[in-house]
Nucleic acid binder design. Structure first.
Length: 302
DNA sequence: TATCCTTTGAAGCAA
DNA sequence: TTGCTTCAAAGGATA
């Protein structure tokens, strides 16, 4: 089983090679700070920008309420039309140079890795590997098309998507405040380009790789992301840019800081392990940090 | 039940 | 300015 998985993965290498032209990354994209977001910078009209000039009724109502001093919860706008990858004007791509890290998961067919996997006997009894037999389960709510992606920005603090109206019953101020703290819906961060790519491609990878585990799927998607051409990536950077713009329009006072600390972590040390290269691999061990790949430098004629 | 894992990118923050 | 941290999604695994 494991051998089949590994061998099949090699077959996929031919379909999803490592990105060529490493180091030839796009130019930096100016950050969308609130102060530096002139509306005239919109280069081309799109349904999204039409929405900007004609805000959703729920938002308009909320704006009016805010001006009138009336507290009214913002309803999730219908943004389904904005989640298609239109071929609008292409923004500049971010400058960040990131390298794919070595895969930590062994892979099933259609996974596209070219690097070796850790030995499966590395850590008996460890919580990983977790690869079960490929399942054919598909389509359980997975959006198959970007246009089907619901807007993810607002969820209640419980993490579920069903919005509940605030309780306006007769309660003490302290009680009301406490309940508002609990029930106040969380405005999520807008999705970045890679997240949008993942949303669109996840179902495809699940189908191809017959995988279920998101961690493994995300590794594959990370590889494929690097294998995309600049033009293909530009689609998602542009979509993400519009996402951020729309997000700022809908929630002007929102800051990413608002959601800081809402995800509790088990321990600081453990998290640092996972963010400083000391990650536990698929077999529960902590591999040495891979040496940084040498960036491709074109030969110069002296 | 909450968190981890895993990815990239955006944003916040401390130095 | 730099570097580190957190959080966006996803769902099975784990504490």
């Amino acid at each position: 089983m494991y051998k089949e998985t590994v061998y099949s993965a090699f077959n996929l290498l031919m379909h999803y090679p490592a990105p060529s032209g490493a180091g030839q990354h796009p130019q930096p994209q100016p950050p969308l700070h609130k102060a530096s977001q002139p509306p005239h910078s919109v280069p081309q009209l799109s349904p999204l920008y039409e929405h900007f000039s004609n805000p959703h009724p729920a938002q308009a109502a909320a704006d009016i309420s805010q001006k009138q001093g009336v507290h009214r919860p913002l309803q999730t706008p219908d943004l389904s039309g904005f989640y298609s990858l239109t071929s609008g004007s292409m923004g500049q791509l971010p400058h960040t140079v990131s390298w794919p890290s070595p895969p930590l998961y062994p892979l099933s067919p259609s996974c596209g890795y070219r690097q070796h996997f850790p030995a499966p006997t590395a850590a008996p009894g460890a919580p990983y590997p977790r690869f079960t037999h490929p399942s054919l389960m598909l389509g359980s709510g997975v959006p198959g098309h970007p246009s089907a992606i619901p807007h993810p920005a607002i969820v209640p603090s419980s993490g579920k998507q069903d919005l509940q109206p605030y309780d306006r019953g007769l309660k003490t101020q302290a009680e009301s405040k406490a309940e508002k703290e609990v029930k106040k819906p969380t405005i999520k961060k807008p999705l970045n380009a890679f997240m949008l790519y993942m949303k669109e491609m996840r179902a495809k990878v699940i189908a191809e790789c017959t995988l279920k585990e998101s961690a493994a799927i995300n590794q594959i998607l990370g590889r494929r992301w690097h294998a995309l051409s600049r033009e293909e990536q530009a689609k998602y950077y542009e979509l993400a840019r519009k996402e951020r713009q729309l997000h700022m329009q809908l929630y002007p006072g929102w800051s990413a800081r608002d959601n800081y600390g809402k995800k509790k972590r088990r321990s600081r040390e453990k998290h640092q392990e996972s963010t400083t290269g000391g990650k536990r691999n698929a077999f529960g061990t902590y591999p040495e940090k891979a040496a940084a790949p040498v960036p491709f430098l074109p030969m110069t004629v002296l």
